[in-house]
Design a protein around this nucleic acid. Sequence first.
DNA 1: TCGTAAACGAGACGGTACGTCCTGTCTTAAC
DNA 2: GTTAAGACAGGACGTACCGTCTCGTTTACGA
Lengths: 213, 213, 213, 213
Amino acid sequence: MGAENQDVPYRNSADTQPAPRRGGGRPRSDAANKAILYAAREELVEHGFTKFRIEHVATRAGVGKATLYRRWSSKEALAQDLLADLAAPHIAVDDVGDTRQELYQCVEHALHAIRDTPFGAVIRALVSQIAINPKLGDPFRATVVQARREEIAKVVARGIERGDLRPDCAADVATELLVGPVYFRLIFGGDLGDDLARTIADTVYLAFSAPPD
Amino acid sequence: MGAENQDVPYRNSADTQPAPRRGGGRPRSDAANKAILYAAREELVEHGFTKFRIEHVATRAGVGKATLYRRWSSKEALAQDLLADLAAPHIAVDDVGDTRQELYQCVEHALHAIRDTPFGAVIRALVSQIAINPKLGDPFRATVVQARREEIAKVVARGIERGDLRPDCAADVATELLVGPVYFRLIFGGDLGDDLARTIADTVYLAFSAPPD
Amino acid sequence: MGAENQDVPYRNSADTQPAPRRGGGRPRSDAANKAILYAAREELVEHGFTKFRIEHVATRAGVGKATLYRRWSSKEALAQDLLADLAAPHIAVDDVGDTRQELYQCVEHALHAIRDTPFGAVIRALVSQIAINPKLGDPFRATVVQARREEIAKVVARGIERGDLRPDCAADVATELLVGPVYFRLIFGGDLGDDLARTIADTVYLAFSAPPD
Amino acid sequence: MGAENQDVPYRNSADTQPAPRRGGGRPRSDAANKAILYAAREELVEHGFTKFRIEHVATRAGVGKATLYRRWSSKEALAQDLLADLAAPHIAVDDVGDTRQELYQCVEHALHAIRDTPFGAVIRALVSQIAINPKLGDPFRATVVQARREEIAKVVARGIERGDLRPDCAADVATELLVGPVYFRLIFGGDLGDDLARTIADTVYLAFSAPPD
DNA sequence: TCGTAAACGAGACGGTACGTCCTGTCTTAAC
DNA sequence: GTTAAGACAGGACGTACCGTCTCGTTTACGA
């Protein structure tokens, strides 16, 4: 996964969990790791979490089941790692000097991750687990969701500083107004075109923009 | 369950599907129906859809598996009925003559259903299936989601008529801005208090309200 | 198996163990029972007890594993039933009025069962389990071995009565002298032809025959 | 282990098989050899061949699996070495000048090995393999069984020479009559006291003794 | 005194089988 | 003809061993 473990501290995988315990023994295979994660992604996207079969993942990865269970103790743990890997690259929003544009980027990044990368299919398969199962939900909230909230908080802070947004503008509500609609359409249907991002960003900007005087 | 089948046309259950075919033989037990739905809800909420076991539902309902399969052909069909039953009562928004208040009710109804009724736990367990599995998602979108969109469209139309909202206000985006944040918090965490409804409704009203002149 | 359960009281199978508990439910399939026992015999003979695979038996019998485990809780239990079924027909020795001939029959019956019926291959595969594992050994001793000892005791008694054998002739030792050599050759190699039976019977008769006066 | 390899030509172990190939490299550890054989014996006796686990032997011996596989290519090979080591010391019968006593020793040696040494438990665990599996059976027959047959043949020859036994007395049948009963009791149950040896030897002597004239 | 070469303990590897559980169907007797 | 009960074939679960393969380390011999 990503190079910075400090960004994704809740990993379950071999690279952090049991600590790469030194001492005798053949080291765990990086190739197996990658093959499993790749196979898991494909299976998850094709069948959804409910029909996500560990045995099929192992077979597809050309790996024994024990090799998989040595690294991840459950479907959930495996799915969580998958999610963290796929979500990480889509959080950051650049300071471009234009508040309306930055708000647009907040929506657009979420939209892009969901529409154009495997993250979309994976999150669709896992929203229920995130909502219900703390083993998956807690780490996801603590990392991905939290990162996005903070990123949007920065955008809002910059907007207030620039005088574009009202000083009492709440970053949390801004997050939900900007990203909530995207996830709503992901789950309940609706077009995920770029114009959604434009419309949402403009509307939120309008609602939060500082009064003319 | 709902009294009007025309409102919920996608039912899978015995009372619509094979038609209560008349003729000899013991009539199907209503008690079994209810016991199954109740047991299904409990099991679904306790274990999530992934670990939702038909066998456990049957045992908990004190019913043979065949009795269950005679009524619903799959987990999905059963879950869908459950969902439709629970969602139906929380859609309608009254005309109270006050646009801001009606927008508030749009959010509040979603919030109330999710926070204060079994619908919340059930939808949490089923979002992934709705997002992924057309067998569940299509009917849900065609009934519950569509009903809510239409209800909000009426609110928006009344608001425009009253001169409270801008004439170009899009009902779909309004739906997502009003309800999206609620589902966002349901899934990704966040307080589901009444003030959320207030804040969201006010913000949306602000964004969509007609310019002073 | 045999019609008389009183002859083989240690059965593990469905027909005795859990009692054909009356009440609801589909009755257990006789066909499955037979298919499993047949398949088990073939597998045991082909591979020996060490490589006797429950999964292969089930597949060969065209039966789910659960169906097999419902009837027999372990390899041992299944093997034991197999053994009892195969051993039962080869115990009895007829009263033919000729002591030498009856002794011959004692050896010949053991020899025939081992050489000409599936019992031979099965017992070869299971001697170790009989010797070591009380779960298999105790019932086998209590039924098959005991029956043979008693049958030979009758032959000896008749021989003494006729005045052919010495009155102090011990039936137990007779059993071991008559049957031990057969099993010795079964395990450690040696010809299992009819002349072995003749030689052993004559020798034992000679050793145990009453002195001329 | 046995000092004379010509007595036990079928060894599988390191000391004969790959020839202690000369050249560089660390020599194989004698300690490991002994630890493995000891652990193997314990495991075999405790669990029987069917549940004899190479992995447990290695762990119990404090040895890596590769170290074990470097010396023995299979469970069978290991078991065979075990057997040969334990059987070797109990074959020879001394010429004591008394035929009846020598016959007694034939039985007694088998009885003693089985009753008073680890050989008993090990052979019990391995009879089935000897009977079924040529990898174990052939070497065992060619060495231990053959040695015992030859030893008894010598006793019989001496008995005939002394005029104690009939000249047509067959050594093979004598072997089976003397030793068969012991193994019969080992497997199928029965007292293994000294009186068994006495009774068997006396009976065989009686059957085979030369007529008074 | 140093390579060099093989053995060492440890433990991961791809597999196979275990015994359990669940799926969706089928088969009873009872009502 | 429906009911509860429960057996059916099939197949995935997570665990345990198989026999093989790397690791990093240790030990003896020949240069």
